[in-house]
């Protein structure tokens, strides 16, 4: 395994039950109904997730990658309980949480927090930073006194490298990176166990991306957090992730340990994605080798959703949907060619 800082801290902090599943998505489907067009007979729908299952263990930084529109955010929202699945189940620490009623769900809301892509939109512009940070505490921890709330806000701000004096100011007075660090502080305020970060650094400049990633890694090590980290940037995955799920058009193609995925990508789509990572290099840019455009989730290809771009596609691929099958090292790969040993 990668000697991540998370594994080293377990020696000093009380050892949590490693390898214990914290969050599980089972056979999730999500269909968005777009209503019917006035000229058309058929209803139009988007099949955003087609039978996706993932399991996240305690202490992991599980990364989801894939092109935009492939369903990463939808899966995250389903797992957070922000969106009901069309079918399938979500389990958190042993309890099924999809479909729980408001009151029964409240304790889970505290244990699971989310950080969004756009630090401009996700903070309320009319509230001071202090008000924004106090709000989740006052909601989930009515037992705390005012002094305790203030102390907690200050401690969390300091822990993510923010100046506690920012409290009296409004979001527009901060840069993108600072706002994202405020969003992280807000998510950490109620001591969650599970944090979903949906493209948390995509809107930021490189020099600021590094600051925010560092803050997230420090928080993981200090608090023993479990992350679901969504990104389309594979170099960030390599740096941050313990395991990775690769998605394409609402399906999971491959699920592997980060190191294994980069050393030995098996699904043809994973290979395409890895070959297209832009790197600083003095060699000229070359086309990644696979032609074509991503089809639309409104008009899903039959069989394997990747078949019209896949160099290994055969007749069977446009008919049968490949199931994710475990390989020798535990990696899951959903591909007929890999199953048939042609991969």
């Amino acid at each position: 395994m990668t000697p991540t800082a998370a594994t080293t801290t377990t020696m000093t902090s009380p050892a949590p039950a490693r390898d214990r599943v914290l969050v599980e998505a089972r056979a999730i489907r999500k269909v968005f109904d777009l209503g019917s067009h006035f000229l058309e007979r058929t209803r139009r729908e988007v099949k955003a997730l087609n039978d996706v299952s993932i399991t996240i263990r305690r202490g992991e930084s599980f990364c989801l990658v894939g092109e935009s529109g492939c369903g990463k955010s939808t899966l995250a929202r389903v797992m957070m309980g922000l969106l009901p699945p069309s079918s399938g189940e979500v389990h958190f620490d042993g309890t099924r949480i999809d479909g729980l009623r408001h009151k029964a769900r409240k304790p889970f809301h505290r244990r699971m927090q989310m950080i969004f892509q756009n630090p401009y939109a996700s903070l309320n512009p009319r509230r001071t930073v202090q008000q924004t940070l106090e709000e989740p505490l006052r909601f989930h921890r009515p037992d705390l006194s005012d002094a305790e709330v203030k102390a907690k806000v200050e401690a969390v701000m300091v822990s993510v490298g923010n100046d506690p004096s920012w409290g009296t100011r409004y979001p527009h007075e901060f840069s993108g990176g600072q706002r994202q660090r405020i969003s992280i502080a807000r998510a950490l305020m109620v001591d969650p166990e599970f944090v979903v970060a949906d493209e948390p650094i995509s809107a930021l400049d490189v020099s600021i991306q590094a600051q925010v990633l560092n803050v997230m890694m420090d928080a993981r090590d200090q608090r023993d957090l479990t992350y679901l980290f969504i990104t389309h940037d594979l170099s960030v995955v390599r740096h941050f992730g313990t395991r990775v799920g690769v998605m394409y058009l609402g399906s999971l193609c491959e699920l592997a340990e980060t190191k294994t995925l980069f050393a030995n990508p098996r699904h043809p789509y994973t290979r395409l994605l890895l070959s297209a990572i832009p790197r600083v290099s003095t060699e000229e840019m070359k086309p990644p080798g696979l032609p074509g455009e991503v089809p639309s989730a409104m008009n899903l290809p039959s069989g394997c959703v990747f078949h019209d771009r896949c160099p290994l596609a055969e007749a069977r691929c446009s008919v049968d949907v490949p199931a994710p099958l475990p390989q020798d090292d535990g990696t899951l790969v959903a591909c007929h060619a890999v199953e048939e040993g042609r991969g």
Binding site: S207, N214, H239
Partner: peptide
């Protein structure tokens, strides 16, 4: 130098990234 060093993939996986302190 700072911009190039901050790119993930430059350092060791899992280690802190080299950040430029402050912002423009």
């Amino acid at each position: 130098r700072g911009l190039l060093a901050a790119l993930p993939g430059e350092g060791t996986a899992g280690a802190r990234l080299n950040q430029i302190r402050g912002s423009m």
